[in-house]
Simulated scan of single mutants.
Amino acid sequence: MEQFSVRSGSPAQTALIGAALADALRPGDIVLLSGDLAAGKTTFVKAVAEALGSTDPVTSPTFALAQFYSARSRILHVDSYRLADVEEYRDLGLAEYQDEVISLIEWGEKIAGEFPCHLAISFVATDETDGRSLTFASSCDRWTGALGDLHAAISKDTNGAHARDRIVID
């Protein structure tokens, strides 16, 4: 499994990380986001959507379960929090769109077995105010080189930033 972690100290830094990922995404990609409530998952999805050119309002689809956003590549935003199991996800009928959209799934760990090839991003709050640690991981061939490219892109995006604004890569 290939993986790396970054530490974000603010929502703005989380948005920079999301924008860097957006450059690597293509239709058919599945990104599973995990983390506690208010860990930054929806903020991250909003940044990815904006980086892909979406002007649609991005909100957590906790009650709607799924939302589509128009962008250079169409985005499917799913929230699995209220789903009891994978069967409930299957009943939504979203699998028919998977090859045509970029899927960003909050609470994705609940249905990870449904997606043999996916990028997992876990969000963990740190002790600092608004701080988050994001760990990117995948064991799928699609992400083998892409994770290295993403790591380099995040490093480049913050290389010239003031020390307090730099994203720390672990």
Results as ranks from 00 to 15, higher is better:
V48H: 06
P61A: 12
R82E: 11
A19M: 11
V31Y: 04
D149G: 09
F44A: 03
L21E: 14
T59A: 14
G35V: 08
H162N: 10
R90S: 12
S70F: 02
T144H: 13
L76S: 07
A38C: 10
D99W: 01
E50P: 02
V58M: 06
A125N: 13
D130H: 11
V86K: 09
A51F: 01
E109F: 00
F136C: 11
V45L: 07
H162Q: 12
Y69W: 02
H118T: 03
F63M: 12
W143Q: 11
S5E: 14
I30T: 12
G108A: 03
L92T: 13
E50F: 00
A24T: 10
S34F: 01
R90L: 06
A161E: 14
I105R: 07
S103I: 01
P61E: 06
A152D: 15
T59I: 10
Q3V: 00
I111M: 11
L37S: 09
E2P: 01
R164A: 14
D170F: 03
I30P: 07
D29H: 09
G9D: 12
Q98F: 09
H118V: 02
G18Q: 01
S133H: 01
P116D: 13
T158Q: 15
D170A: 13
D141A: 15
H162T: 07
A22C: 12
I154H: 05
E87V: 09
A112C: 10
W143N: 09
A19D: 12
W107N: 11
D79V: 03
K41E: 10
I17D: 06
V101R: 08
I17R: 03
L65Y: 11
A137E: 14
L65E: 08
S138N: 11
L25F: 00
G148T: 05
G9Q: 11
R164Q: 14
F68V: 04
T14Y: 00
P116Y: 05
Q98M: 07
H77Y: 04
R74K: 13
L150I: 06
V86H: 02
V101I: 07
G35M: 02
S155A: 15
G40N: 10
L25S: 05
F44R: 04
V86A: 15
D85F: 03
V168L: 14
T62H: 04
G40V: 02
I167K: 08
T55L: 06
A152S: 13
Y89V: 06
S8Y: 03
